[in-house]
Simulated assay, not measured.
Amino acid sequence: MKRPEFIDGNGFIAEVIRTHRRKSADIRVEEGAVSVVVPVDTSLERIGELLADKRRWIKEKVALHQEMTPPGSKRYVSGESFSYLGRNYRLKVEKGPFAPVKLVQGRLVVSVPLGAEQPHMIRNALIRWYKRQAETKLNEKVARWAPQVGVTVPNMSIKTFKSRWGSCTAKGELQFNWQIMMAPNRMVDYVVVHELCHLLRHDHSPQFWGEVGRVLPDYEECREWLKRHGHVMVAL
């Protein structure tokens, strides 16, 4: 996976996504996080100019998201605990130029400048980190479980869902909620197997659950665990 690239927009952090599939820039604000998709050879200076031109619009979109996001219990300060694959890791906030979250010696370390936007920046940095982990780990798990389910490895993407952990589209593409990465490994396996089995049966019939049970005999325990604890994982 390519190393993530970021630009400090003075009040927000923009992730730079370089691609061969675009000939012009596209600035996005999704879940309060800013990204700019550009052709691969676009200079950082040019990207900075694009962000400066749209700074007012970006800040308005970020502020709107903050207003619409229900206040949670997290303050995004050093010492707070965040779950990853069922284990809790303490957050360590360092003051300085922005640096994305890294898991170092059992701590989630992030560097952000001081300012009123610091908690928002830390939250977005954590979401970006979870999404990167989800892309890597879920691709690995799909490749591992697909042969056991009896299907070819499908296309996969990471999404944000409010009330589901995964989805199988009519075209056979699997979509996974990045927040499942807070659950224990076995629960992640269950969600992957569940969606892979939808490639065999696109329903929740007894035959479908029979396919899930053939691969994961303890699937009912996993499903019940997610029902009981799922609300805690979405409270980032």
Rank of each mutant, 00 (worst) to 15 (best):
R18Y: 05
K162E: 14
R75V: 03
E60A: 13
E49L: 12
L114P: 14
T169R: 04
Y190H: 10
W225A: 11
L126V: 00
V36Q: 10
L51I: 01
A63C: 05
E31V: 00
A125S: 13
V149D: 06
L85M: 14
K102I: 00
F12N: 12
F161I: 00
M181N: 03
S163K: 12
S163E: 10
V212T: 05
H231W: 07
R164Y: 02
A116G: 09
W178F: 15
E195A: 02
M121R: 11
A125K: 01
K61A: 15
V212I: 05
L138N: 01
Q133P: 02
K92M: 08
F82C: 07
R223D: 08
V215C: 04
V29M: 14
P217Y: 05
T160S: 15
L51K: 06
F176P: 06
G11L: 03
G106T: 01
M1N: 09
V37R: 07
H198V: 01
P206W: 03
E30D: 14
F176C: 09
P119V: 01
M182C: 10
V36G: 12
S163H: 10
H65Q: 09
L50Q: 10
I47D: 14
F12P: 11
Y76P: 09
H231A: 11
G32F: 06
E195L: 02
N124T: 12
R214K: 15
D189W: 04
H65R: 12
W145I: 02
Q179K: 15
I47V: 15
V16Q: 05
V34R: 10
F82E: 03
K227H: 05
T136Q: 12
E211D: 15
G86F: 02
Q148R: 11
L216C: 05
V37I: 15
P147V: 09
R22V: 11
L85G: 04
I180A: 05
R46G: 03
G166V: 00
I127Y: 13
G150M: 07
E67M: 12
L216A: 03
I13D: 07
K141Y: 03
H20A: 13
Q179A: 12
P100K: 02
P147H: 08
L226N: 02
T69P: 14
V188R: 00
W178D: 04
M156L: 15
L114C: 13
T42E: 12
I122A: 14
